[in-house]
């Protein structure tokens, strides 16, 4: 019945992998709870902190400027108004505090590009989070169940995962997108697009979590919990899951940043977010021809895509380092130094 030990985890032998955290705390972090260790490690990671701040700024800017869910924002235009062209549609921003009429310029029919970019950022972030949350949830549940229970649940769930893996994502997105438009019209499509993509993108995570569970369930502390009479649910959620949380968070963040790019790619071939709503992917691919003539139509949404992706990736990286107890700061030369006396 399938492979005994995980095929997707970076390493396998029980006891040497990303080991359980509570029974054996790293010596230099003695006296700290798991949460404290993670927090401390994370806040020590400059790149991750900078990214977190930048992402927070983008988030606040996007949601406060053009408003969200009916709440008006502080920016004077929205992403659908046609306005007379000011400055030939070129950006009017001249400094951080003199934004002018249309800081990011206007598109060819006069819509305010700042409003469009902000709305697009909003939508891209929403899609990203829905995909992250949904794919994370489904992936964890399926991975955890198949890894923990083994036997026929594993066989069924993993083969079901295979089915989802081989159905082309683009096809699913295209079909579901059409269906969405038919059912609900343009308003809710962002949410549903995210929903559907989330429902097909969980497969990688499920395989990883299963791998993690396969190795963790053989560990002593699980046996101990069983003997103590803990229920399966309790073992899964209280004992094993906390030990796998590193892998889960890291892969979810990676998935989220690739989700933005996937949405961009879908928009490029015409199956992503549909006008009149906008996403970063949609406006950048709509304006790809403007690369040389009106570069701002290209650069601003592009900049936000890149920034969001970079931030998410670095935050994910920081989380990985923080959650992984084995991955302490490693230095070749220091290791060499410390090895020398032993060799001598």
């Amino acid at each position: 019945m399938s492979i005994q030990t995980p095929s997707d985890v970076p390493s396998t032998e029980p006891g040497t992998v990303t080991g359980p955290v509570h029974p054996e705390v790293e010596p230099e972090a003695k006296g700290l709870s798991q949460g404290q260790i993670v927090r401390k490690k994370f806040f020590d990671n400059t790149a991750a902190i900078i990214s977190l701040v930048v992402f927070a700024v983008i988030f606040v800017l996007a949601f406060s400027s053009v408003g969200f869910a009916g709440i008006p924002g502080w920016w004077k235009y929205n992403h659908t108004e046609f306005l007379p062209l000011v400055n030939g549609g070129a950006p009017t921003v001249t400094g951080p505090f003199s934004w002018g009429e249309h800081p990011f310029g206007q598109d060819s029919i006069g819509r305010d590009y700042f409003a469009m970019t902000m709305r697009g950022t909003q939508n891209s972030i929403i899609i990203m989070f829905i995909i992250g949350a949904l794919a994370g949830l489904v992936g964890v549940i399926i991975g955890a169940c198949s890894g923990y229970f083994r036997g026929w649940p594993e066989a069924v769930l993993m083969r079901f995962t295979d089915v989802i893996i081989i159905i082309p994502v683009v096809l699913a997105a295209a079909t579901l997108g059409e269906g969405v438009n038919r059912l609900v019209g343009a308003g809710a499509q962002i949410w549903l697009l995210g929903l559907f993509l989330g429902l097909v993108l969980w497969t990688g995570l499920a395989r990883l979590v299963r791998g993690e569970f396969l190795s963790l369930r053989e560990r002593e502390f699980v046996d101990a919990a069983k003997i103590a009479g803990a229920s399966n649910t309790r073992i899964i959620f209280k004992h094993i899951l906390p030990n796998a949380v590193g892998v889960i968070i890291v892969n979810t963040t990676l998935l989220m940043s690739s989700a933005i790019l996937l949405e961009t790619a879908l928009s490029y071939i015409g199956f992503g977010v549909k006008a009149p709503d906008v996403s970063l992917g949609l406006i950048i691919s709509q304006n790809q021809e403007a690369f040389q003539t009106r570069p701002w139509l290209f650069w601003f949404p592009g900049l936000f895509i890149v920034l969001i992706c970079l931030c998410i990736n670095f935050i994910g990286d920081g989380l990985r380092d923080a959650f992984d107890p084995r991955q302490k700061k490693f230095s070749a030369s220091r290791a060499k130094e410390s090895a020398k006396p032993a060799a001598a």
Binding site: T80, N181, A275, P276, Q286
Partner: peptide, 16 residues
Amino acid sequence: NRDNPNRLNSYTLIAE
């Protein structure tokens, strides 16, 4: 046809 940008823009201007 909402997926055709020209038509969408025409509609928006006409509706307004």
